[in-house]
Design a binder for these strands. Structure first.
Length: 560
RNA sequence: UGGGGCAUGGUGCAAUGGCAGCACAUCGGACUUUGAAUCCGCUGAUCUUGGUUCGACUCCAAGUGCCCCGGCCA
C-alpha cells in the first residue's frame, strides 16, 4: 500500500547500523551460516538462517555457507547434502561460497604455530581427568599445568610431532596460555587442538590433530572476511576467547553477536535428542513429518514461505523464549488457505444410500477449485450417484445440542449437490451402524432450494462407485506436554513421546485426486490440508499426509 | 559478592524520557454451500522497592527470579 511493511528492526540491526555509522567495516555486511554436519536442520536453524541470510541481504551483503566440521567422529557427508537441500528449499543461496572449516586446517595449524612462538600456547600432557581437576570450579580458580612453562622450542617440536602422528589419542593437547584463574572458565587455558586418529569426511586421514570449535570458528570467520558472526546465547561466554585469538594473531576481527535460539512448544530442538528418536525408532527417520526438521516440514507440506514468515513474526531478541507452536500453525494455515485447491475426501466412511435416486444413474457436478473465489482457479468434474460415502462424524443417531449435521429426520445439504433427508438407519445384529438411508430432493440440484428454504448443515461426500482409495496419515504433536524437556526427576523426554501421534487411515477420495502431484497441497474440505508423501507414494498407492487440520470450533465447543 | 546474560498480557515481539502497541492464543457475537475463511468486539502486561524528572517500560541504586559456563563437543 502506501508503505512496504518496513522490516522490523532488532538489536542486531541496530548494532550493524552503528557499525555503518562509525565505519567499522566500511559499510560492509558479510555473514555466514555455520552448521555442523551431524544432523538435519530444524526450525531452530531456520531462525539462524533467516538472520544470517536475511540481514546480509537487507544490507546488500553476502552470506557464506560454512560447515563447522572440526570433529570427524561426529560428522558425516549424509548430513552435508541434506543441509544444502534444506537451505535452498527455504529460499536462500550462498552462490559459490560453500566452505568448510576443514578447508582451513593448514592455515589454522600455522596460526597455532604462531601462538606457540609468541609464548601463548603450549603442549600439555595432562590426562582428561587431570585437566578437569586442574581447571578448578566455578567459584575456585584453577591451577597451572606442570607443562605450562615448557620452552617454546620444545612446544614447537612436540606440536609438530602431534601432527606427525607420533602420539596416541588423548595423550597430549595444545592449549592456549591465558589465565587459569579467570572467572570465565573458557579462558582457563582452553584446548586448541586434540589428537584424534579418525577419518574425516573431507580430509580423510590427512590429519590426526583437529582444532576445537573455539580455535577454528573465529579464525575461519576472519579468513573469509566475515563482518558479523551471529550465534546463539550460549556462546556469549566464548566471545572473550573469540576476541582473544583474533587479537593475539593480529588478524581481521569480525564481531560476534549472540541471540536467543528458538524453542517451540510440544517439540524438542536438541539434535542429540532428535537423533535418539530416529535411532531408537520412535519416528521414521529425520524426515518423519512429526519431526521439527525442515525436511520433515517439507514432506508434511509446510510451505517454505510460511516458515520464513513465522521466523519474521517471532522477532529476534536476547531473552530465552518459548514460542507457541500454534503461531506456526496459524501461519501455515493462512498461506495454505490461499493456495490450496479444494477437494472432497472421506476419511472415516459411512455409507449413505439415496433411496429415491435412480439405480445406476450418475451425474457430474462442475465444482470450482476455489469456491469462494472461482476466478482464482479452475474447476473439476465430480461424479455423484445413488451410493455415497460421508464422514462417520457427520451423522448422529442422537444429535447433541446444536449439532448441524445429519441425523434421523433431518435435512441437510450435500455440498454442491442436493439436500437430503435421513429416513432410516441400518444396523447389524449387534447394533452396529451399517449404513443410513436418505431421500434427496431433485429440486435442490447444486445445493440450493428454489423455494428458498434453508438448511443449517452442509457436509461433504464422495460417490462410492467412483471413489479412489488412498492411505491418509494424520499427525499429532510428538509430545502432548508444552515443554517436553521440563520434566520431573527420573523421567525422560522419551517417556513422554506421544505414541498416538501418527494415525494411518484408508480414505475414499474424489477421483480427481488421482491427478495429485507431489509438492502440491490440497484442502480436503472441512478437514484440513493434505499433500502427497514424497517417500511412500507409489504410482499404484497414494499416500497423503495431513499437513495441518482446519480450525475446528465445533470440536472445541463439543468437548468443552 | 565466581563470571556472563535476560526480565513488558497466557505466548512471542514493539514502544530507545512524552497516550504501553502488534500478532498468536482465549472468550463473546455477525456471516457462511467448509462449524474453515472473513468481519466485529471483550479480557489481559511494564519483576520488586526506592531515587532522578513536569513526565520513567526507558535513566540511577538496591533487591528478586530465570538462563548459560567446570567436553580433548559445537
Amino acid at each position: 500500500m502506501t508503505e512496504e511493511t518496513t522490516t522490523k528492526t532488532n538489536f542486531i540491526r541496530e548494532i550493524i547500523d552503528e557499525h555503518n555509522r562509525t565505519g567499522r567495516f566500511d559499510g560492509r555486511v558479510h555473514t555466514r551460516f555455520p552448521p555442523e554436519p551431524n544432523g538435519y536442520l530444524h526450525i531452530g536453524h531456520a531462525k539462524a538462517l533467516c538472520i544470517d541470510f536475511g540481514i546480509a541481504e537487507d544490507y546488500g551483503g553476502l552470506t557464506n555457507l560454512r560447515y563447522d566440521d572440526t570433529n570427524p567422529v561426529k560428522e558425516d557427508v549424509e548430513y552435508v547434502d541434506a543441509i544444502k537441500e534444506d537451505i535452498h528449499w527455504l529460499g536462500f543461496d550462498w552462490g559459490d561460497r560453500e566452505y568448510y572449516a576443514s578447508d582451513y586446517f593448514e592455515p589454522l595449524y600455522e596460526m597455532a604455530l604462531q601462538l606457540i612462538e609468541k609464548g601463548l600456547a603450549y603442549v600439555d600432557e595432562l590426562s582428561p581427568d587431570e585437566m578437569r581437576e586442574y581447571r578448578g570450579t566455578l567459584t575456585e580458580p584453577g591451577k597451572n599445568s606442570p607443562w605450562r612453562e615448557r620452552p617454546i622450542e620444545e612446544n614447537l617440536d612436540m606440536f609438530r610431532r602431534m601432527r606427525a602422528g607420533e602420539f596416541p589419542d588423548g595423550s597430549k593437547t595444545l592449549r592456549a596460555k591465558i589465565d587459569m584463574a579467570s572467572p570465565n572458565m573458557n579462558m582457563r587455558d582452553p584446548v586448541m587442538y586434540r589428537i584424534l586418529h579418525a577419518t574425516h569426511h573431507r580430509t580423510g586421514d590427512e590429519w590426526c590433530i583437529y582444532p576445537m570449535y573455539d580455535f577454528a570458528h573465529g579464525q575461519s570467520d576472519s579468513l573469509e572476511g566475515i563482518t558479523h558472526s551471529m550465534c546463539s546465547l550460549e556462546y556469549e561466554n566464548h566471545r572473550p576467547l573469540y576476541d582473544w585469538f583474533l587479537d593475539q594473531l593480529g588478524i581481521f576481527h569480525p564481531q560476534q553477536i549472540e541471540f536467543a535460539r528458538l524453542n517451540l512448544t510440544h517439540t524438542i530442538m536438541s539434535k542429540r535428542k532428535l537423533r535418539r528418536l530416529v535411532e531408537e525408532g520412535f519416528v521414521d527417520g529425520w524426515t518423519d513429518p512429526r519431526m521439527p526438521t525442515l525436511s520433515a516440514m517439507r514432506r508434511r507440506g509446510y510451505p517454505a514461505a510460511a516458515i520464513r514468515e513465522f521466523i519474521d513474526t517471532i522477532g529476534v531478541a536476547k531473552s530465552d523464549s518459548f514460542v507457541e507452536v500454534e503461531l506456526l500453525e496459524h501461519i501455515v494455515r493462512d498461506q495454505l488457505n490461499q493456495s490450496s485447491k479444494r477437494r472432497m475426501a472421506v476419511l472415516q466412511p459411512l455409507k449413505v444410500v439415496l433411496t429415491n435416486y435412480p439405480e445406476g444413474q450418475v451425474e457430474y457436478f462442475t465444482i470450482p477449485d476455489f469456491p469462494h473465489n472461482p476466478e482464482a482457479g479452475g474447476t473439476r468434474q465430480v461424479p455423484f450417484g445413488r451410493e455415497l460415502w460421508i464422514e462417520r462424524e457427520d451423522f448422529a443417531e442422537v444429535p447433541p445440542p446444536r449439532y448441524h449435521r445429519l441425523s434421523p429426520g433431518k435435512e441437510i445439504r450435500l455440498m454442491n449437490a442436493y439436500f437430503i433427508t435421513c429416513t432410516d438407519v441400518v444396523k447389524d445384529e449387534e447394533g452396529h451402524l451399517i449404513e443410513i438411508h436418505c431421500t434427496y430432493d431433485p429440486e435442490t440440484q447444486g445445493g440450493s432450494a428454489p423455494d428458498g428454504r434453508k438448511v443449517k448443515g452442509t457436509i461433504h461426500w464422495v460417490s462410492a462407485a467412483h471413489a479412489i482409495e488412498a492411505e491418509v496419515r494424520i499427525y499429532d504433536q510428538m509430545f502432548l506436554d508444552q515443554h517436553p524437556e521440563d520434566l520431573p526427576e527420573g523421567e525422560t523426554f522419551l517417556d513422554h513421546f506421544n505414541h498416538d501421534s501418527l494415525q494411518i487411515l484408508r480414505g475414499y477420495l474424489e477421483p480427481d485426486l488421482a491427478n495429485a502431484k507431489i509438492g502440491e497441497t490440497y484442502q480436503f474440505v472441512r478437514d484440513g490440508y493434505f499433500t502427497l508423501d514424497n517417500i511412500h507414494t507409489k504410482p499404484e498407492k497414494l499416500v497423503f499426509n495431513r499437513t495441518i487440520g482446519l480450525v475446528d470450533t465445533w470440536a472445541k465447543v463439543h468437548k468443552g
